[in-house]
């Protein structure tokens, strides 16, 4: 029933309708009407014994759903997987979040969960890359690492007594710059082995956070700071006296080529289209959508027009029927 807020002309409407119907027919073959709404009773076989999982409760000896979703059965366990729900963190999830507060020894990070997450100063690598005790001086310099409103990438460490803890113990985690943050419904992102992607043809980095925050940015070379720092430090010392005049190297650092910037926008728009249509977001689908847009020469701003939506829906239906056949 969730209708698209698009102005389609008659042919586009028909084409979209057809593509969506095809998707429907493809999926209904796979599972036999397992969707339930709130307070629907779930048929179960009591003789086998039964474990009630999330989204279920018991009423008058019946198992009743408490959320709208799909019934899943794993051996004795019966649970309902909610299709539209808030992000629920699991240990090891890679997430993208925004720093909202710098507190003593910790940052508070907004990660789309019902509570804010905590990133302790002690659970992240310092910029100098040396493993050592965090001193009071480090605590005073916390703002030089992350400030309020910085977008960061981290990993879920687990639940402690005071909430959800994050960690960033590798060079790939940390502050994200020069790119776009996109917010998609978290249920469209699936947990996979790889959440960091480098799209080489476009020179962009893609971080698909499990919490529905997606980062599209310029590719950053992950460097081993231990080696590079020695060089950098001497350069910085030289640069310090005239901070106002930007050295050519710094300029090079802060400058993103127009081509890269366009690619970032293109990928971002592709993700926007996919999330509006409610398709699962994976790196393959994103690259396919971007390739589709470049192959038919759609300008970046036209990607959000109704024609491209229809094309993406058609493409998706073709893609899914192909994978079905295999």
């Amino acid at each position: 029933m969730r209708e698209l807020q698009l102005s389609l002309n008659q042919t586009q409407k028909v084409r979209l309708q057809r593509a969506l119907e095809k998707l429907e027919s493809l999926s209904s073959k796979a599972n036999s009407n397992a969707s339930v709404t709130v307070a629907d009773s779930i048929p179960v076989n009591y003789e086998d014994g039964l474990l009630k999982g999330h989204g279920t409760s018991e009423f008058n000896g019946e198992v009743v759903a408490t959320v709208c979703g799909i019934v899943e059965r794993v051996n004795k366990l019966v649970y309902v997987r909610a299709l539209r729900a808030r992000y629920k963190p699991e240990v090891g999830d890679i997430i993208v979040g925004r720093v909202i507060e710098v507190a003593p020894k910790r940052w508070r990070v907004e990660i789309n969960y019902s509570h804010d997450a905590v990133l302790m100063l002690s659970s992240m690598n310092l910029p100098d890359g040396i493993q050592r005790r965090r001193t009071a001086l480090d605590e005073l310099n916390m703002r030089s690492i992350f400030e309020e409103n910085d977008v960061i990438c981290a990993e879920v460490r687990g639940f402690q007594h005071d909430g959800l803890h994050l960690q960033a113990r590798s060079q790939k985690y940390g502050k994200l710059g020069r790119g776009q943050l996109l917010t998609v419904p978290p249920y469209l992102v699936k947990r996979r082995k790889q959440h960091f992607h480098h799209l080489e043809n476009y020179g962009i980095d893609l971080i698909i956070g499990c919490n529905g925050f997606i980062w599209v940015g310029e590719h950053v070379q992950v460097t081993d700071d231990m080696v590079v720092d020695q060089v950098n430090k001497s350069e910085q010392d030289d640069a310090k006296p005239d901070e106002n005049s930007i050295s050519p190297e710094d300029q090079g650092k802060n400058y993103t080529r127009q081509e890269t910037r366009e690619n970032i926008c293109r990928a971002a728009n592709a993700i926007r289209v996919l999330s509006t249509l409610g398709f699962n977001i994976t790196v393959e689908v994103i690259t396919e959508t971007v390739d589709l847009s470049t192959s038919i020469n759609v300008a970046i701003h036209e990607m959000l027009g109704s024609e491209f939506y229809v094309l993406v829906a058609e493409k998706e239906s073709v893609r899914r029927s192909m994978t079905k056949k295999k």
């Binding site: 969506l20 998707l23 969707s35 339930v36 299709l83 539209r84």
Partner: peptide, 18 residues
Amino acid sequence: IREVLLENTKQLEYRRGI
């Protein structure tokens, strides 16, 4: 209301294509 919700759930499901 149930009809509407069930219809919505089905839509979400097949759009995602699980």
